[in-house]
Amino acid sequence: MKRIVFDQTKCVGCRVCEAICSLSNEGEFNPEKARIRVIRTFEEGILYKTPVMCMQCENPYCQAVCPAGAISRDGRNAKIVDEKKCIGCKLCEVACPVGAVTVRSDRHAAVKCSLCADYDEPQCAKFCFGGALQYMEEERVGIARAREKSVKFLELQRKEA
């Protein structure tokens, strides 16, 4: 099973992920409609950038609170909204711990990341220039994270060698 893995150290905050997401899923360039958002915060001349997207929780609150049973898990472990069943109550929006679900009046339904159900892979990860977003097999995530974190230790070892 694959999932999107995010590496903050590689993110430059370019927002290509927002643009390609809205183009691929909505047919337009509109960050407001993107399923992934890069939150930009300015503090005293420093810009902080934090991407926010659906983490495809193992025990999703959005699914648990949905009174219409509109959210289900697909074969790729993506949590999918069935727009025909969705009543637009917004409980999922409230329940999501990362703020990755929104109810849109133009669709009368909740909108969230489906890992690009219409494509062979999530487009945000596919087109992430710096490799901050990667779509990888679950079993590789652990070792990938460990390797990422080991860089500092490696530097120390090199200095001592």
Partner: peptide, 8 residues
């Protein structure tokens, strides 16, 4: 950090 234009 880096700074730049949207979507670049």
């Amino acid at each position: 950090g880096s700074l730049g234009c949207s979507f670049c």
